Simulated scan of single mutants.
Amino acid sequence: MNKFGFIGVAVLILLGLLGSTLFVVDQRQFGVVYQLGQIKDVITQPGLNFKLPPPFQNVSYIDKRLLTLDSADTEPLLTAEKQRVVIDWYVRWRITDPQAYIRNVGLDESAGAMQLNRVVRNAFQEEINRRTVGELISAQRDSLMSDVKREVTEAVKGAKPWGIDIVDVRLTRADYVAAITESVYRRMEAERQRVANELRSTGAAEAEQIRASADRQREVTVADAYRDAEKVRGAGDAQATAIYGEAFGKDPQFAEFYRSLDAYKASIGKKGDVLVVDPAATDFFKALREAPGAAPAPARR
């Protein structure tokens, strides 16, 4: 190997060694420097840092941002009245002490999330056991979340601190299990159907009352109108009779003739009427026979 090749190889080795001693800590992370498997230093500020090359020192990173843990367990919990409910919740938490976290929890965020899930579920179970379903969906829901947050905080700040802070605990859903939910829906549907039938019955009864009242008013109105009409008609007939009597009293012969004409009109004035009588043997056609210019009646045989 010539002199220039040796120099080039040496430069590459030096660059490699230099690169293994440099590391960058992002503003979203903690940098944890290990020396022979033990935590040597924790870098909390972002920037370029130095360490010994492997295997003397190694570096790992832990997220320092606000983390969210969502519930993944669908096992039902028991309330104070022994009702089985399914809940959904989430927890907002962050790592504040990487050394305590690594010693007591694990090397990454997933280890903390796994253990935190167990603690939060146990806290919810304990608090829900003390409350009824009605309290879970009422104003006591806020006190439930506050109590769970307090219990979880006490657990992670205990004899062996986890090195994390619990920022918030929220209960997003509390519902019956599927079998109970179906039964509740059926009861609600039956109750609504009962109320609907009651309203229909009440409405039908009121409708019958209104209809009966309207029919009664109609009958009364018609009867009153008929009574008034009969009074008017009676008065008119009486007045007409008086006028006819006065007029016909002046000329009885004309009155008889006039009534005969009305009788003819009523009897033979319609199309298709057939009347079989003997004009000479009845007084019905007397007015016609006595009319001026009328033909004499045929002699009876």
Rank of each mutant, 00 (worst) to 15 (best):
M1G: 12
F4H: 05
F4W: 00
F6I: 03
V9Q: 01
L12G: 00
G16K: 02
L18A: 15
G19I: 01
G19P: 01
G19T: 01
S20R: 04
T21S: 11
L22P: 01
V24W: 14
D26E: 13
R28G: 04
F30H: 02
G37M: 07
Q38K: 11
Q38A: 15
K40N: 10
V42W: 06
V42T: 14
T44Q: 05
L48Q: 06
N49E: 08
N49V: 00
P53C: 05
P55Q: 01
F56N: 08
V59C: 03
S60F: 02
I62E: 05
R65M: 13
L66P: 00
T68L: 12
T74P: 00
L78Y: 07
T79N: 03
E81T: 13
R84C: 01
D88W: 03
Y90Q: 07
Y90W: 09
Y90M: 14
I95Y: 02
T96L: 09
Q99M: 07
V105P: 10
V105W: 06
V105R: 10
L107A: 09
S110P: 03
M114P: 00
M114C: 01
Q115D: 08
N117A: 15
E126M: 10
R130G: 12
R130S: 14
T132N: 08
E135T: 13
L136N: 13
D142I: 15
D142T: 15
D142R: 07
S143I: 08
S146E: 13
D147F: 02
W162N: 03
I164N: 05
T172R: 01
V177K: 06
V184M: 13
M188Q: 11
A190D: 10
A190L: 11
R192Y: 07
Q193W: 03
R194F: 11
A207T: 08
E208V: 11
E208S: 11
E208L: 10
S213V: 01
A214K: 05
A214Y: 04
Q217L: 14
Q217W: 06
Q217M: 11
V220F: 05
T221S: 14
V222I: 15
V222G: 02
A223T: 09
D224L: 09
D228F: 06
E230V: 03
V232W: 03
A238D: 09
Q239E: 12
Q239W: 11
I243G: 00
G245L: 04
F248R: 00
Q253S: 10
Q253G: 04
Q253W: 03
F254R: 15
A255Q: 04
F257N: 08
F257W: 07
Y264I: 10
Y264N: 03
Y264G: 00
S267L: 15
V277Q: 09
V277I: 14
V277N: 04
D278I: 02
A280T: 15
A280G: 09
A280Y: 11
T282E: 07
F285L: 15
K286L: 14
K286H: 06
K286R: 12
E290I: 02
E290K: 12
A291N: 02
G293L: 08
